[in-house]
Structures are given as structure tokens and as C-alpha cells.
Amino acid sequence: MRRFIPHIVLALGAGVMLLPFYWMVLTSIRAPAEIFDISLWPIPKEFTGVENYTQAATTVPMARFMLNGVIVCAGILIVQVLTAVPAAYALAKLRFPGRRLLMIAVIAALCVPMQALALPLFVGLAKAGLLNTYFAQMAPFFLSVFAIFLFHQSFRSYPDEIIEAARMDGFSEMEICWGLVLRGSLPSLAAFAVFSVVAHWNDLYWPMIVVNDTALAPPPLGMLFFSDVETGANYGALMAGAAMITAPMVVCFLLARRSFIAGITMTGVK
């Protein structure tokens, strides 16, 4: 019995965490009359899933929102990796004056919340005439100190002798950084990609500030427009939309799950 207790406790925790998702999926296939029914029985009395999903997919340009989400998330992730990997390599493996100070600056920057920067960033983008662009949605996140920190932790454990052997063989520092050191930290890259994509796919705060054009809206902002259009009446369709935008993230995490966990445990970031 004793060896089951931890499993029971964990299962209860998992149940609590999963309940909202279950509720979301359940609501998305229920008819409006049943929505406020507190029963958790998975089979609705009247199956209206097809209608709900069709409505969610056709009333608003759901495909457009998804595409916007992909563009914004991919843009952010690519620039984050392009900038954070060399920075982390330099901080972890090169010796130069001011390295400690820069590392302290990175850690300090981790403590600054996005909300504190929203106003100056908004004003700056507005003055530059860049509101209502993909760029405005991506730019504040191009430089990720979290990525620098995560990669730094992981790169630090790469053996110095291999880097030195590579230098003697004629590798350039960039080739060492991308071809050897990052290659040895692929789980960290996967972990960071999951963090970044999930965070920006689900982000409502920043897109709401800089975008009011439906054609540029990422999924959560699009959902907001959708609920406005529907004046919040049809929860079934709303939840169908929510289920549709959540699904890619769940798939994304399941695919990268093994690497994600390895990346997190390896770097000691928990």
C-alpha cells in the first residue's frame, strides 16, 4: 500500500491541474443547454461538437490567427537563439575583462518583469510608427536573458579540452559555438524552445497592447475578438476555439517532452 501513496497524491495533483483542460474540451462538445451542468460525465446528452468547432473555425479567421501565432513565435525563437547562444558561449567559455559583471547584469535582467517595460516599449514603437506590425509583437522578446542564462548553465559543463582541440584543428569560435557546444546542449535548446513558444503563443498581454488589426492577431487575441463578436453567448464555440489553439502547444510539448525534461534537469534550472 505504502508504495502507492505517492502515486495517489501525484495523481490527485495531476487531476487538479488537468481539470480545467478537461472542462474546456467537455464544454466544447456540449450543447448550450448543458454548459452549466456540473456533471463531469464525458459523453454529453446532445453532441454538438461539430457545430461548436465549425462555428469557432468559421466565424473568425482561426487559420489566420494560427498562422500569425506561428510567425510571431518562430520569429521570436529564431532571433532569441541567434543572439543568446553566442552570448552564452562567450560568458561560459571565453575569458575577457568584465565577464563577471556581464553575467551579473544578465541575472539582474532576469528580475525585470515585462510589464515594467511595456510603457516605454509601446511609446518607442508608436513613435517609430511600428504599431500593428509583426515586428512590434516580436521585438521586445528578441533578446532573452533567460535563454542566455539557461544556455550558459548548460554550456559551462562542455569539456574545455574539446574546445581547445577544435581551436588547434582550425575551427573558428563561431563554428565551435554552433557546431560543437550547442550540439552538446540540444536538450537545453529543446527545453528553451518549449518555454519560448508556449509563452509567446499564449501571450495576450503584449499583442493586445500593440495590435488591434484582426489580420495580425495571434490566437489568444483572436479568441478575444471572437468572444466580442459572439458577445460571450456561446461558450461551447468559445471553448472549441480555445481547444484548437491549445492543441498545438500540447503536441509541441509532447514531442519535445524527453528533451525538455533532460534540458531542465541537466542545467539545474527547476
Binding site: 569539456p159 582541440a165 577544435a166 582550425g170 560543437l180
Partner: peptide, 20 residues
Amino acid sequence: SDPSDRNLAMVFQSYALYPH
């Protein structure tokens, strides 16, 4: 000169083979 311009070969204590 850079290490690679010296045309020296080094064998390291840990062998330093490229793992991938």
C-alpha cells in the same frame, strides 16, 4: 600565431574527441 597556424597536434589527457 593562432593555434591552428602552428601546425601542431595535441593529444589531451581526456582525449578530447568530438563526441558527435
